[in-house]
Simulated assay, not measured.
Amino acid sequence: MTDEDAVAPSMKADLLRYLQTGRDAVLWKLDGLGEYDARRPLTPTGTNLLGLVKHLAGVEIGYLGDTFGRPFPDPPAWMTAEDGPDDDPQADLFATPDETREDVVGLYRRAWAHGDATVEALDLSSVGQVPWWPPERRDVTLHRVLVHLIAETHRHAGHADIVREGIDGAAGLRADGSNLWVEGDGWPAYRDRVERAAREAAG
């Protein structure tokens, strides 16, 4: 066994742990919300919580499925050639009225399971192809794809955190630990402090 072989399992575990932390954070942002708040556009560009979940499901299905020749079983209609992104580039960014929250969350969880099985089956040095990337960058290792997925998932977890805060003030990383240094009634005083600093700096 080489040193690389010995390190790979723990490196895989680290990468999957960071990916799973982001996955869980995104789903937690739906907790306690009614259908309208879970789906409604919350920014001028239409960012919505259930749409973020749907988008990330598609991202995982692509990067940890097709990229490595491991197609996802029974993909949803919006991912097929007939009804997919070429016909509606926003299809993965919001839930239609006939897609239930359970449908979208269930798809995301199935995407996790499929992706985790890919990671388990392959070496981090295994090479796949991302067909939607430019030709000069299409060949990728599993390691690179996992780093990409962690970055994308946590980016969207940040989006979800901000838009959820705008709905009802709920914020933080997870239910059992917000990872925020201010809690409860301390936020107005902190916000006022930031406001005063900004006004002073602006003259």
Rank of each mutant, 00 (worst) to 15 (best):
N179L: 15
I150N: 10
R191W: 05
V140R: 10
D192T: 09
T141G: 12
G184E: 12
V140N: 09
A175D: 08
E195T: 11
W133T: 07
E195Y: 05
P188Q: 01
G184N: 10
W132T: 11
H154V: 03
A175N: 15
G166S: 01
G184D: 15
G186D: 06
E195C: 00
G128T: 11
S178K: 14
I167E: 06
A160D: 02
R193D: 13
E165L: 11
T153F: 08
P135A: 11
G158L: 02
L180S: 06
E165R: 09
A198L: 15
D192Q: 14
R196P: 00
L173S: 05
G166I: 00
D185G: 06
G172A: 14
G166K: 00
G128H: 05
V145P: 03
A151Q: 13
A198K: 08
A198T: 07
I167P: 02
A151M: 15
G128D: 13
P131F: 11
L146E: 08
I167H: 02
E195W: 10
R137Y: 05
T153Y: 12
G158N: 05
I162N: 00
W187K: 01
L173N: 05
T153P: 02
I162E: 00
I150Q: 01
A198F: 03
V147L: 11
S126W: 07
L173I: 13
D192R: 13
R174T: 15
D176I: 01
A151D: 08
R144V: 05
A170R: 09
T141A: 13
G158T: 01
D185W: 00
N179A: 11
V147Q: 09
A151W: 09
I167S: 01
V182P: 01
G158A: 05
G172T: 12
S126D: 13
G169K: 09
R144C: 14
W181I: 11
A157L: 04
H156K: 03
R164V: 06
E195A: 13
G169W: 13
R144A: 11
G128S: 12
D176Y: 03
T141R: 04
A170F: 13
W187L: 05
